[in-house]
């Protein structure tokens, strides 16, 4: 793997002198301590340098392997912990030294308000200038040599860079091959880390829920409750008016916030309805309106939190909760009606 150097400067509201980072065989990890997987800034640094971006919340990485840490810190913990360990720290937010660990946050190790735009590959001219300066010193020291001065310069330029990089600069077929190789490497790396992310959510969320659902259906089927359920639910779910009624009931403002959390109820009912459709007790055509009928309460438990995620003002939250809850009583049956009409296309 070839490593390259990037420069990271502070953003418009940021702090710090900026960082220049080059991965090494020991320190080759960009640790993303941001939550929600690898942050785009960490991914970009990894992409440009050839380092590996890893989600710090899911994977343990020894400090010795870390080249830089990307954080989105609200001012106390992460902003101080990593500079304290003298690990280069990049804050997405416009932070400056604050909190109890402020003394450790120094401009040479910390930079903030960093977005994709603040990251750039170190200018090739700068790198080349440094290299040719080195080359001159060397040729003086080396005295007479059988190589011409130009070839010495070219040869020494390779030292701070990697073979593949120099090949890329030379142009022609080799450059194309190297660029193509780097591109393929990037694609494969992204796919692999996506696979890891997919496996994570399957292990943590999907499989446990499957086990729970499997047990639930097992009990329902084996004990014959499914027959009883089918007999009682089928009249409601097997005609359009029943589905309309169901969608109205779940959208009643008193009930909807209770039915909402984690979509647990909608999921269980979805599975039960699915079993009935699979068994032929309900016609396939009713699958679509059913999907909307059992979901009229979606998100009604989460309105204030969802709105505050959108940085809504308290007045907006108080007006918004009622607005969403009340309109649901109308829009939920409308959704079922539209789905019922659309189901004729099935």
């Amino acid at each position: 793997m070839s490593y390259q150097t990037v420069k990271i400067v502070k953003g418009s509201g940021g702090w710090g002198d900026g960082l220049v980072l080059t991965p090494t065989d020991e320190r080759h990890v960009v640790l993303s301590v941001t939550g929600g997987g690898v942050h785009p800034v960490a991914a970009k640094i990894a992409e440009l340098t050839g380092a590996e971006a890893i989600d710090g919340f899911n994977t343990h990485v020894p400090d010795e392997e870390v080249m830089a840490v990307v954080i989105n810190c609200g001012g106390t913990a992460r902003i101080g912990v990593y500079p304290k360990k003298r690990l280069p720290t990049i804050d997405i937010y416009p932070g400056s030294p604050t909190g109890p660990l402020a003394q450790f946050i120094t401009p040479d190790i910390f930079v903030s308000d960093v977005g994709i735009k603040q990251i750039s590959l170190v200018d090739e001219a700068t790198a080349a200038a440094a290299a040719s300066a080195a080359a001159q010193t060397q040729s003086k020291e080396g005295g007479a040599s059988d190589q011409s001065s130009t070839t010495t310069a070219t040869a020494t330029q390779e030292r701070p860079k990697t073979v593949s990089q120099t090949q890329a600069e030379k142009g022609g077929l080799m450059s194309w091959v190297v660029r193509f190789g780097n591109f393929i490497g990037y694609v494969i790396n992204t796919l692999l880390s996506s696979g890891r992310q997919a496996l994570q959510i399957i292990l943590q969320t999907v499989l446990p829920f499957m086990a729970y659902v499997g047990l639930l259906i097992g009990i329902v089927n084996y004990t014959g409750i499914s027959q009883v359920l089918a007999n009682s639910v089928t009249p409601l779910a097997s005609n359009p008016l029943g589905l309309l009624l169901l969608s109205f009931i779940v959208a009643i403002p008193v009930l909807s916030p209770i039915l909402g959390p984690g979509a647990a109820i909608a999921q269980v009912v979805g599975v039960l309805m699915g079993t009935q459709i699979g068994a032929g007790a309900l016609p396939v055509q009713y699958a679509l309106p059913t999907l909307f009928a059992i979901d009229g309460q979606v998100g009604c438990d989460f309105i204030p939190v969802g709105l505050s995620l959108g940085e809504a003002k308290p007045e907006t939250v108080s007006v918004g909760v009622s607005a969403v809850l009340f309109t649901r009583m109308v829009t939920s049956p409308i959704a079922v009606a539209i789905a019922y009409l659309a189901s004729f296309l099935l």
């Binding site: 959510i201 659902v213 979509a263 999921q267 979805g270 599975v271 699915g274 079993t275 059913t290 059992i294």
Partner: peptide, 14 residues
């Protein structure tokens, strides 16, 4: 992905 069964439950029957 955490709430896939609303869809997956019904669609499994289909």
């Amino acid at each position: 992905a955490g709430e896939i069964f609303v869809w997956a439950g019904v669609s499994a029957g289909v």
